[in-house]
Design a protein around this nucleic acid. Structure first.
Length: 836
RNA sequence: GGGCGAGUGGCGGAACGGCAGACGCGCCGGCCUUAGGAGCCGGUGUCGAAAGACGUGCGAGUUCGAAUCUCGCCUCGCCCACCA
């Protein structure tokens, strides 16, 4: 295998002109299979992945930005001797295809495939080392067959279930959403931004909450702190107690509440149930029934936004019944109020107005008793508003046998007392809900379930997968799945009895497709299973995964859940999909808004690539700032990168440079050689660390500095010396991951055989980076006043003597003796003057 | 309301508690050009002729020494938000 250009006539022009070689090298690399990762390659494997895109039809500058970072890291790993897999594919199911299809009267499959084809071509101009031989397209039946298979595995394991309940519905997209896919204070659809409403529907769910606790653990994972924090908050684990309050008059059934503050139970002066609570209709007394039903009906009509608003005044009604406080035996009234949410905890609370702001507001409004049971240890009670502190400095008051106990201890003590009498127990609740996976749209994988009148919901037998999407469907959104209208497709037989049955018409959330695509890349062509276990064992977990932080509590939670569930079902040997996660920042439009076609602020890379070449665009994007920061698009400065590459060109081809006469190795020349080798080897270490740490902007500035040094030395007559050749070859090698084309072109022009991308990543020689002399800043009272040039082994006493002898220092000492002299060896000297 | 993060030249941004402003853009000057929106060289935080003084959102503190650590404010961004 060779990496010589495929074309026989290779242009030998001296001018820096990326268009003369970039496309040629891409063709050569592809023909040579440079980027194809082989399972049988004996070198240690590293799997690097960037989140695959949705095939919207156009690659914009944000795609380049996102993909170039991990491409650089993957390329460096390859040069460091790893067998690197860096695949790419398309997240091709989803609403935009369907909406575009409706607008243009074209089938989603045709629209999607055309976009994929276009984007593949655009992606190729990046020169990224994508292994296209492993490409995955999630809307392809050969892929979604296994998406359906995974659904069935979870279903059989009891991790998928069908349930009726209030769900979030996007009225514009005409589809339900998972809780994670509703964003912001005003609860908008993650895709289109329309405020969602609640609907009662029977839907399919995944029991992701079975894994809430395990998902809270990030042991051994190198994830950005904000992602860990967001996931932790989203899962929202709360420790407390569940307590049963018997009810009057008949104690039909006790009301179970969840509280994080069992220490305040002596202050529970009433109870509040969510209007939806099942016991409401049972407990409501006849005289209160009309009011209660009116309130419940009103609560149902409210939008989620209204109901969740903290601004709003609290409302509720008394249901006529009473409960018994198990600690005080006191008879307390039961109310319903919409500030108690049906989906959290038990949907019922013990209200402790003295120590909870919400209960306080409610009690104030309805004249309910407020009893303080926690007070500062040093006396005094915060009257008038809820007092919520409960640490070591607070003690229980008016709390029976527990009076005087530190509030921090009382939580455990009261929980224990309740446990002993069987009235309660320690409990943990989570804010996270199960994952709603049904979708009422066409362009997704059909849920592989059939309904039989006799046998109910039945899984489609695995040997009948995939359940293929029919093509002749009227997919205009109507609020029910378009497949519902396709009688011929829906009609099937029950796998249990062979009788007539009807297919589930909803499709699977496209987030399900993206929850396992990284597994498919390991063995994309496997036809008798979703993946080859030997391949996933060899490649997984991913060494590095990159993508946008906007997926913090969606994709990045789901894919962890999938890996854990599939592990427990015996299909994987790993606990986590990736060891290391990095988020790129977002490139905004020049107007500081998100790039979108409707705003007209989308920056296409094509025009820039035509003008400057891929390398310049790649390097410029990586140079504008820290990769995880992003920022508004501003092309000013791209010229600077282009100039830099032009200077590298000139430096690398000294025979074509203006002054390139090698000088005789005199003493001055030897010092220049040492200086050049010093910066060359220092740059190796710095660039390696910067790339490893995703600091591409500083990596590039180091490379620019090395370039500047090389050119300076060339002007000083060093061209043609071994040190010069070392510097240039090192520069090209270090640049290769960032600007792969020019590095390759110059590598070959300088006479090297084989691709630079198969060359070894250089090692820094520490002996060469050490300097003969160091420059020590001399401060007086922390301000720079002078500099000393000394050898590294100069004794401290000598340095101190020299520092004090400095006339600049003497001026500030004004004849006085220094109070002290601080020396940081090799770093600086600070002379401290006497204080008056 | 809660949580997290960020405020540094005209701009993007550098800076293990140790020389603030690396690198680049822009700008200014020069060279080369018939010309230049090309290329090359030099300068460029502010004030000041200079010596020097002052400078990292504001105010305190810790330290020999703070852009960096602590506390309090201000501004901006993101996440969560009646979660018991």
């Amino acid at each position: 295998m060779t990496t010589e250009p495929a074309t026989a006539a290779r242009p030998r022009g001296a001018r820096f002109d990326p268009s003369s070689y970039e496309a040629r090298w891409r063709a050569t690399w592809e023909a040579d299979g440079l980027d194809v990762a082989r399972d049988d390659d004996p070198r240690p494997k590293r799997y690097v992945l960037t989140m695959y895109p949705y095939p919207s039809g156009d690659l914009h500058i944000g795609h380049w930005y996102a993909a170039t970072g991990p491409d650089i890291v993957a390329r460096m790993y390859r040069m460091q001797g790893f067998n690197v897999m860096f695949p790419m594919g398309f997240d091709s199911f989803g609403l935009p295809a369907e909406n575009a299809a409706i607008d243009r009267n074209i089938h989603p499959a045709i629209w999607t495939n055309a976009n994929i084809e276009k984007m593949r071509a655009q992606f190729r101009t990046m020169g990224a080392m994508f292994d296209w031989s492993r490409e995955v397209v999630t809307s392809d039946p050969s892929y979604y067959r296994w998406t359906q298979w995974i659904f069935l595995q979870l279903y059989k394991a009891g991790l998928a279930y069908r349930a009726n309940g209030a769900v979030d519905w996007c009225p514009k997209d005409q589809v339900v959403l998972a809780r994670e896919q509703v964003e912001g204070v005003d609860r908008r659809c993650w895709r289109c931004g329309t405020p969602v409403i609640k609907r009662d529907l029977e839907q399919w769910w995944f029991r992701i909450t079975n894994y809430s606790d395990e998902l809270l653990s990030f042991d051994g994972l190198d994830y950005p702190e904000p992602i860990k924090l967001m996931q932790t908050n989203w899962i929202g684990r709360s420790e407390g107690a569940e307590i049963d309050f018997p009810t009057e008059p008949d104690d039909v059934e006790a009301i179970r509440v969840f509280t994080t503050r069992p220490d305040t139970i002596f202050g529970a002066t009433f109870m509040v149930l969510a209007p939806e609570h099942p016991l409401v209709s049972v407990l409501t007394t006849e005289d209160r029934r009309a009011d209660v039903e009116a309130y419940t009906a009103a609560a149902r009509r409210e939008t989620e936004i209204e109901r969740m608003s903290t601004e709003r005044e609290k409302t509720g009604v008394f249901i006529g019944a009473h409960a018994i406080n198990p600690m005080t035996s006191e008879r307390i009234p039961i109310w319903i109020a919409d500030y108690v949410l049906p989906g959290y905890g038990t949907g019922a609370i013990m209200a402790v107005p003295a120590h909870d702001e919400r209960d306080y507001a409610f009690a104030e409004r309805y004249g309910l008793p407020i009893r303080h049971v926690v007070a500062p240890r040093d006396g005094g009670v915060a009257e008038g508003s809820a007092y919520v502190a409960h640490g070591e400095d607070e003690v229980l008051v008016d709390s029976g046998a527990f009076t005087g106990m530190a509030a921090a201890d009382a939580i455990g003590a009261i929980t224990k007392a309740l446990e002993e009498t069987g009235q309660g127990s320690a409990a943990v609740t989570y804010r996270q809900r199960d994952w709603l996976i049904s979708r009422q749209r066409y362009w997704g994988a059909p849920i592989p379930i059939v309904f039989c009148d006799e046998h109910g919901a039945q899984p489609v037998p695995e040997d009948q997968l995939p359940v293929v999407l029919p093509e002749d469907v009227d997919f205009a959104p109507t609020g029910v799945s378009p497949l519902q209208g396709h009688a011929a497709w829906q009609a099937t037989t029950c796998p249990e009895c062979g009788g007539p049955a009807r297919r589930e018409a909803d499709t699977l959330d496209t987030f399900m497709d993206s929850s396992w695509y990284f597994l498919r890349y390991c063995s994309p062509d496997k036809s008798d299973g979703p993946w080859d276990r030997a391949a996933t064992d060899a490649w997984m977990p991913m060494h590095l995964y990159t993508g946008g932080a906007e997926h913090a509590v969606m994709h990045l939670l789901y894919y962890r859940f999938f890996v854990k569930a599939l592990r427990d079902l015996g299909h994987l040997s790993i606990d986590e999909p990736t060891l290391k996660l990095r988020n790129q920042g977002q490139i905004l439009g020049a107007d500081h808004n998100r790039m979108s076609k409707s705003r007209g602020n989308v920056q296409a890379p094509d025009e820039l690539v035509d003008r400057y070449g891929s390398d310049t665009v790649r390097a410029f994007l990586m140079f504008i700032g820290p990769w995880d920061q992003g920022g508004p698009w501003n092309p000013s400065g791209i010229e600077g990168i282009h100039r830099w590459l032009g200077r590298v060109w000139g430096a690398a081809l000294p025979e074509e440079a203006r002054r390139s006469v090698p000088s005789a190795p005199d003493a001055e020349g030897e010092e220049l050689v040492r200086a050049l080798r010093r910066i060359t080897h220092a740059t190796i270490g710095e660039v390696t660390e910067d790339i490893e740490g995703f600091r591409f902007n500083t990596a590039i500035s180091r490379l620019m500095e090395l370039t500047n040094a090389v050119i300076r030395e060339r002007e000083a007559g060093l061209a043609g010396t071994p040190a010069y050749a070392e510097a240039v070859d090192t520069l090209l090698t270090l640049m290769a991951p960032i600007t792969p084309h020019i590095a390759e072109e110059l590598w070959h022009r300088r006479g090297h055989e084989g691709s630079i991308h198969r060359a070894a990543w250089p090692d820094a020689d520490p002996a060469l980076t050490a300097s003969d002399t160091i420059e020590l800043p001399v401060q007086v009272d922390g301000k720079l006043r002078d500099r000393l040039v000394v050898t590294p082994d100069t004794p401290a006493e000598e340095i101190e003597r020299m520092a004090l002898a400095s006339e600049h220092v003497q001026r500030y000492l004004a004849g006085r003796a220094p109070m002290r002299v601080v020396q940081i060896p090799g770093k600086l000297v600070n002379v401290v003057t006497p204080r008056d």
